[in-house]
Write a protein that binds this DNA or RNA. Structure first.
Lengths: 358, 358
DNA sequence: CTGAAAGCGCTAACAT
DNA sequence: ATGTTAGCGCTTTCAG
C-alpha cells in the first residue's frame, strides 16, 4: 500500500467488527467457572435471594478474574426499563440550552439515568423522527423543555410514557407534570428595574411567532404590568420578535434602534436575545449603558463575561431541572408526581443597565 | 387532600408504572392477527427473505392498525449492536463543547446513530463512572474530544471498542484513528496577524496544566514560530494559564494586563479564554482594540456577537466532526479507518484586533 | 441455599 | 413462501 507523505501507519486502524471482537464475558461464563448456575450468579450480583458466603466469594472471585461486566441491554429487555430518558431541547443559538443539557445529564446520572438529547431544529422533520426514535429505544420518560409539535405530544400520550415539562408549557396536556417558573414576575422585575433607573421609553425583544409561546408572553405581560404601575404602556412598534436567538435579538434591536424615536432601554425576554441586542447597539455606535440599557432574562453563565456584564433576571435552572428530574423519576416509578409551586426569579444587576440620561 | 391555594388538580399526575401501562404491541401480536408467524412479520419488516404480496399487505395492515413499533432494545440484544455511540466532552464553561454536542448529535443521527453525551467535569470520579457506564450500555463506539484518563483509555482498548479522537490527541494510543487539525498553523496565523498589525509585545493565554495538552501546546508553538520569523520570542511571563474556560481566561488576562509592561495584544488559544480576556480588559478600563488587541481560536458562534466581535482562527468543526463520525462508523463496521490529513484553520478578522498604537 | 425452566422481543439458521 | 427452532444475556418464579 502506498501512503501520502506524512501519513504513517499510525494513522490507520484496522478495526474489528463486533463479531471479531472478544465477546463479553457473560453471567454463564462465570457460572461455569464457579461451578454454579446462572441464577446463583445473578443472585450474588443483585444481592437478592440468598447464597452461602462460600459460593458468594467464589462467584465474586471469578467476576473479578473474568472482568465480568453486566450487559445493560439484556437487563433492560427483561426489566422493561432502560434507565434512559429523552431530553427535548430547542436548537436555536442559545447558550441556555447548552447549560440545560449539561445540568440534566449530571442530575439524571445522579439518580441512575442516562439521557438521549434530542435537539429540535425549528420545525424540521428530523427532530420529529429523532423524537419517535426515542420511543423505539424504550426511554423510560421524556423531559420537554421547548415547544413540541402537538402530534408528537399525542404519540407520547398514547404511549402513556411519563413526561415532565419545564421552561415551556405550551400545548402541554393539562395533566402533565410541570415545573413552573413565575415568568410574569420575572418580566415585572425587569420592568421595575428599568423604570427605577428613570427610563420611560422602553423597547421589548421577545419570541412571538406561531410556535412561540406563553412562556415569553408571560414575561412581556409582567413587563407591561410594571409599565402600567407607572401609568405607561408598551408601544406596539417597540415590541420586536427576536426568535429566541442571538441573531434574532440582534436584528430586532436594529429595528428598534433605528426608529425615529428609539427606546432608551430594552428588555430582551432571554439572555441570548439580549446579547444579540448588545451586538446591534455596538454596530450602531451606541454605548451601553450610557446610551442604552439592556436587560435580559435567564442568567446564562456567559452573562457575566459579555461587555459590559449583562443585567438580567435570573432563574434557578439547577433547582428547576432538579425538580423536573425528580418528578420524572416519580412518574416513571408510578408514583404521584406533584408539580411544585412556581419558582420565583431574581434580579441580578450588572453593567448593562444604567440611569436614563435623556 | 388539601392543596395550597392556586394549585389545581391540573398540577397532579398519577403516573402509571411501567407494568400498568398498556404493553407495546409486539411482533407476535401482529403475527397472530395476520395469521402468520413471527418470522414472516420480521421478514416483511426487514425486507429480507421473501413474502408473497398478499401476506405482506396483510401484515402491513395490522402493523398499522395495531400501531406496531419495533423494540430497539430487543433488536440490539440479538444484533449485538445498539446504534448508540458515546461522546466524551470536557465540562468547562466553553461554548465550543456545546456546539460540538449539537453537531455530533445531528451528524450521528444522519447515519442512524444516537449519542450518549458524557461530560467530564475535571478529574472527578463521576465522569469516569459515566464513561464505564457507556460500556455497560453497549455503545458501539466512542468519540473522544477531550483529555481522558489513561486508565479509561485502557479499559476501552481492552474492550476493543472502536474509538475515534478529535480536537484532542493526548495519551491517545498510536493506533487510534484521529481527525487532526493543523493547530500549529492556527497559532502561526494568529501570530502573523498580530505582528502584521504592528504588535511586538505579545501575551498568550493557553491551557497548560497537567491534563492540559499538546493540543494547546501546538497552538502556542505555532504562535512562537510567527514571533521567531520576526526575530522575537515569547516572554515566559507573558504566557498565562487560562484553563480553557472563560473564567480562567479572565483571570489570566488580569495577570497579563496588570504587569509593569503589559502586552499590547493577546492570543488566547481558544475563544472561551479570549472572551474571558475581553471581560478582564473591560474591567481594567481598556478599550478593545484601541488599547489592546485580542485574538482567539475556534470561531464559536458567539464570537460574532461579543463586543467588539472577536477576531479568531476558525476551525471547521462541522468538517472535523463529520470526518470523525465517518471514521467511527467505519471502525464499527470493521472497516479500515483511515485518518484524514490534518485540516487547516483559517483566519477570521473581526473587530477585536487593530493596529498597535504605542 | 441452589437449580431448572421460562421468557423479555426480536432475528437467523435451517427446515418444510 | 412460510414455519420451526434456537438463542442474544439476563431475571424471575417456582421447585427441590
Amino acid at each position: 500500500m502506498c501512503w501520502p507523505s506524512g501519513l504513517s501507519i499510525n494513522f490507520v486502524s484496522l478495526a474489528l467488527n463486533k463479531d471479531q471482537r472478544r465477546p463479553m464475558t457473560t453471567i454463564y461464563d462465570i457460572a461455569k467457572a464457579a461451578g454454579v448456575t446462572a441464577t446463583t450468579v445473578s443472585n450474588v450480583l443483585s444481592g437478592k435471594g440468598s447464597v452461602s458466603a462460600t459460593t458468594r466469594a467464589r462467584v465474586l472471585k471469578y467476576v473479578r478474574e473474568l472482568e465480568y461486566q453486566p450487559n445493560l441491554i439484556a437487563r433492560s429487555l427483561i426489566k422493561g426499563r432502560t434507565g434512559v430518558i429523552g431530553l427535548i431541547l430547542s436548537g436555536v443559538d442559545n447558550p441556555f440550552y447548552a447549560e440545560t443539557t449539561t445540568i440534566v445529564e449530571r442530575l439524571a446520572y445522579a439518580v441512575g439515568l442516562r439521557v438521549f438529547t434530542t435537539t429540535l431544529s425549528g420545525d424540521d422533520q428530523v427532530g420529529q423522527k429523532m423524537l419517535k426514535d426515542l420511543i423505539l429505544r424504550q426511554v423510560d420518560g421524556i423531559l420537554i423543555t421547548t415547544w413540541t409539535e402537538k402530534q408528537i405530544m399525542h404519540v407520547i400520550a398514547a404511549m402513556q410514557l411519563p413526561v415532565v415539562h419545564c421552561f415551556w408549557e405550551d400545548d402541554k396536556p393539562a395533566s402533565t407534570p410541570y415545573v413552573a417558573i413565575d415568568l410574569e414576575s420575572g418580566g415585572l422585575l425587569a420592568g421595575q428595574h428599568l423604570l427605577s433607573l428613570g427610563h420611560r421609553h422602553l423597547g421589548v425583544i421577545t419570541h412571538l411567532n406561531r410556535d412561540g409561546s406563553s412562556a415569553h408572553e408571560q414575561r412581556v405581560a409582567g413587563f407591561q404590568n410594571a409599565l402600567s404601575q407607572h401609568g405607561l404602556s408598551l408601544d406596539p412598534i417597540l415590541l420586536q420578535d427576536g426568535r429566541s436567538s442571538m441573531e434574532g435579538g440582534k436584528t430586532a434591536a436594529h429595528k428598534l434602534l433605528t426608529q425615529p424615536n428609539p427606546p432608551t432601554a430594552i428588555f430582551a425576554t432571554n439572555d441570548a436575545m439580549a446579547i444579540g441586542a448588545m451586538a446591534a447597539a455596538w454596530e450602531l455606535g451606541l454605548q451601553i449603558p450610557r446610551d442604552l440599557s439592556i436587560i435580559g432574562l435567564d442568567d446564562v453563565t456567559l452573562a457575566k463575561y459579555v461587555v459590559p456584564p449583562l443585567t438580567t433576571v435570573a432563574i434557578d435552572k439547577e433547582a428547576i431541572l432538579s425538580h423536573a428530574i425528580k418528578l420524572l423519576l416519580d412518574a416513571i416509578n408510578g408514583q404521584e408526581a406533584v408539580s411544585p409551586p412556581p419558582l420565583s426569579p431574581t434580579l441580578v444587576i450588572r453593567g448593562s443597565t444604567g440611569p436614563c440620561l435623556q
